[in-house]
Design a protein around this nucleic acid. Structure first.
Lengths: 112, 112
DNA sequence: ACATTTAAACGACAATGTCATAATAATCAA
DNA sequence: TTGATTATTATGACATTGTCGTTTAAATGT
């Protein structure tokens, strides 16, 4: 039934950030997304390490971008979600959704 | 902004299971809930260890139940979510919800 | 008492989360 | 063309969480 590996909580958020930043997902952007949208503070190292681990699991693919027309620095590393990643994200959401069913009527948990 | 500690992915599912089984949440029931609703297979040890860690973090409280009128065995240990646990669950959901905003229009991710 | 049963509790290790620090590749200035 | 400066990747280390096999404890029937 579990066709894909389980994702960690932060891995899931990171994959969602990659999807959102579609085409422009390098660590600094992913970090922005996480801080601005999820409102979770993380360092860039955390993002980077997480992305590399996701890459090793086949959830994302990555490549180096062209040099920027700015002062200095290495080339950026971009990430993009794979089909496997997409499937895992879907599965993670479904798991959560099923657990939430019925809980909106809980006094302290309604979606708003 | 982050008033509560972050929950692991499985910790979140476990807390939801406890809420669902309200009043009848001992490891075996929590396991059932996880397998039947979330459709994730886990051993009972996994559930137990996770619950104890959540207890140490103040997310749940626990007590021993009365002996059952059946063959044998130890007394069951029941768990119940605390206010802190509830807050963490809410926060985790909101984080996720915010990240999902706009993604329903994604070709491979619509909620159905 | 003792065998049998049920469930908690423990121990161990892999995976994930987290960050400080180091290494690298780029541009600008002299 | 060399060196200072900078942006960003990459590494190392450690804490927390995820996972399960095994052991211990507490209950009941014979």
């Amino acid at each position: 039934m579990n066709s894909t590996e389980n994702l960690g909580g932060f891995q899931l958020l990171s994959l969602l950030a990659v999807i959102r930043r579609n085409g422009d997902a390098h660590p600094a952007r992913i970090q922005d997304e996480l801080e601005q949208i999820a409102r979770r503070t993380v360092t860039i190292s955390t993002v980077y390490v997480t992305m590399e681990r996701l890459r090793k699991k086949g959830m994302v693919r990555s490549w180096l971008g062209e040099p920027q027309p700015v002062r200095g620095g290495r080339r950026r590393r971009y990430y993009e979600i794979t089909d496997l990643g997409l499937r895992s994200v879907r599965e993670a959401r479904q798991e959560l959704d099923r657990m939430w069913v019925g809980l909106d009527s809980h006094p302290d948990l309604g979606r708003r």
